[in-house]
C-alpha cells in the first residue's frame, strides 16, 4: 500500500498519522513532511504508526532524525504503535529505548504533557 500522511492538531501537539509502507522509496516523503512541520513551528510531535503495515531501517532513520531535531529545539517527539510486528522491530534495533512508545495517541499526549512539565 502507498504511503499516506495526515496531520491534525491536538492542543499544542501535532499528530502525524502515517499509513501504508514506509521504506527506502517512501521514507523521503515522510522526512519532508516532518521537516515541514518542524520548520513550521511544531515542537511537540506525535507520529501515529497505527496504520503502518511495513517499516524498514530507512523509515526508522527518518524517525530518529525527527527526534533529534525536536530535542535540539527543546521540543518532544513520541510514537504511537501497538502492533506486535512493529514493536518487535523497535526492540530488535534497541530503538524502543530511544523513542517514547505509546499504545494510543491519547496516552502519548498525556505522557508528554506530564513528562514535559508543560
Amino acid at each position: 500500500m502507498e504511503l499516506s500522511l495526515a496531520t491534525r492538531a491536538v492542543g499544542e501537539h501535532t499528530v502525524l498519522e502515517v499509513g501504508g509502507e514506509v521504506d527506502v522509496y517512501t521514507a523521503p516523503r515522510l522526512r519532508e513532511r516532518l521537516l515541514e512541520l518542524i520548520d513550521g513551528g511544531a515542537r511537540h510531535v506525535v507520529v501515529d504508526l497505527g496504520r503502518v503495515d511495513f517499516l524498514d531501517s530507512t523509515g526508522l532513520g527518518v524517525l530518529v532524525g525527527a527526534l533529534k531535531r525536536l530535542r535540539a529545539a527543546g521540543g518532544s517527539f513520541a510514537l504511537v504503535c501497538d502492533k506486535e510486528p512493529l514493536l518487535k522491530i523497535f526492540r530488535i534495533t534497541a530503538l524502543d529505548q530511544v523513542f517514547p512508545l505509546h499504545p494510543t495517541v491519547d496516552a502519548a499526549i498525556a505522557a508528554d504533557s506530564t513528562g514535559a512539565g508543560a
Binding site: 524498514d56 531501517s57 530507512t58 526508522l60 532513520g61 522491530i89 530488535i92 534495533t93 534497541a94 530503538l95
Partner: peptide, 8 residues
C-alpha cells in the same frame, strides 16, 4: 540507517 538495517 546502515546500523539499524544490519540489526534487523
Amino acid at each position: 540507517t546502515t546500523g539499524v538495517g544490519f540489526a534487523l
